Structure formats: C-alpha cells, structure tokens
Amino acid sequence: MSTTKWVIDPTHSEIGFKVKHMMFTNVSGKFQKFDASIETEGDDFAGAKIHFSGDIDSVSTGNADRDAHLLSADFFDAAQFPKISFEATSFTKEDEGDFELTGDLTLHGQTKSVKLAAEYSGQMKDPWGNTKAGFALSGKINRKDWGLNWNSALETGGVLVSDEVRLAIELQFIKQ
C-alpha cells in the first residue's frame, strides 16, 4: 500500500485554547503561525504519523499587553523556547469518526505525553479539485506540567490564571 501525504491548510485551520481567568471567565487564544502534516497508508487515518509545530510568538488573545506577558519568561519564554511541537505516538480509531490521538507535546523546553479526542469529519473535494480532510481535536492539559507556573493569588481566594488549559483545534488537510 502506498503512503499518502497530507499537509495543513492554514487558512481553514485554527489552533485554539481557553484558560479560566479569575476562576470564572474564559480567555481564548490561538497560535496564528503553524505547520502540520499527516502520513497515512492509503486513505485510512488509523495509525497515521502526525506532526505539528507552531511559532510561540504568533500567540494571540486579542489583547497586546496580555500577549506580551504570555511571551515573557513568566509564561512561554518565547525568546528561549520559540516553538511548540507535537509528534503522534498513536492514532487509534475508537468508533466511526472518533479517534484517540496520543503524542508527545513539547512546550517550554519540556516534552510530555498527551491524549486528545479527535473527531474525523471526512473527506471532500474543494471547487479546485483538491481532496481535503477535516478533524476537530479537543482535550485538556495542565500548564504547570510544562513549567508554566506563573500566577497571582486573589484576595477572595483562588488564583488569577487556571492551571487547566482546554484545547480546541480545527484542522483541514490537503491531500498531496
């Protein structure tokens, strides 16, 4: 069986995250510069090799001061750790259209294994004849597992920034 390569369509993909602020509201952000690829045997995605990398300095939360703080040594330390990356270690079909994606997430100079739910949306030809495949990924990580420890206590109890980061990722790939 031949290997099929897929590359990310960045204009139709989004690498997003949400973090609770002051324990009760979510702040959303995304990475705007990234690259990803998939290698499959034929058209079956089970067991696919998946690679992702993103530029830390492309983080955007819609607030320039907050983004500057995220890039500082308090959080991502973009000067020392300019990339976030992910290498799949397994991509297992759970049910029709549902997969479990396990892999190594490297962030802030540390690599840890994470599991994400992956919903496969199917394949379709676009108006220009390109075959596209869509996925929605979701999951949670604890930012402190990667050494992103900065926080500030609130007078009322609790902390300014939650440890839990929820991932919301929409991906569209183009068959090569």
Rank of each mutant, 00 (worst) to 15 (best):
F17P: 08
G103E: 11
T11D: 11
D145A: 07
K144T: 12
G62Q: 13
L167W: 03
A73S: 11
H12P: 05
T111V: 07
D95L: 08
E119Y: 01
G147F: 08
Q80H: 15
K83T: 13
D104S: 04
W150M: 02
P10R: 06
I141P: 00
K20V: 00
F24E: 00
T4S: 14
K83H: 08
F34T: 04
S2M: 07
G147R: 08
G54H: 11
R166N: 10
T11Q: 14
A78Q: 14
V114L: 00
E14T: 02
T111E: 06
G29A: 12
K83E: 11
D44Y: 12
V161Q: 00
S28H: 13
L148I: 15
Q80N: 15
D43Q: 12
P82M: 05
M124Y: 04
M124L: 06
S121K: 15
S2F: 03
T25C: 02
K49W: 05
I8K: 10
D95A: 10
G62Y: 15
Q176W: 03
F52N: 08
L160C: 02
H51S: 14
D74W: 07
D43V: 05
K125E: 11
V161F: 00
D35G: 04
D163H: 10
E155D: 15
K140N: 15
F24K: 03
W128N: 09
G147C: 09
T89S: 12
Q80D: 11
T106I: 02
N142W: 00
F31T: 02
F34M: 04
S72C: 05
K18D: 07
M23W: 03
T11Y: 10
D77H: 09
M1F: 11
V59K: 08
T25G: 03
D57K: 14
V59I: 15
A117M: 03
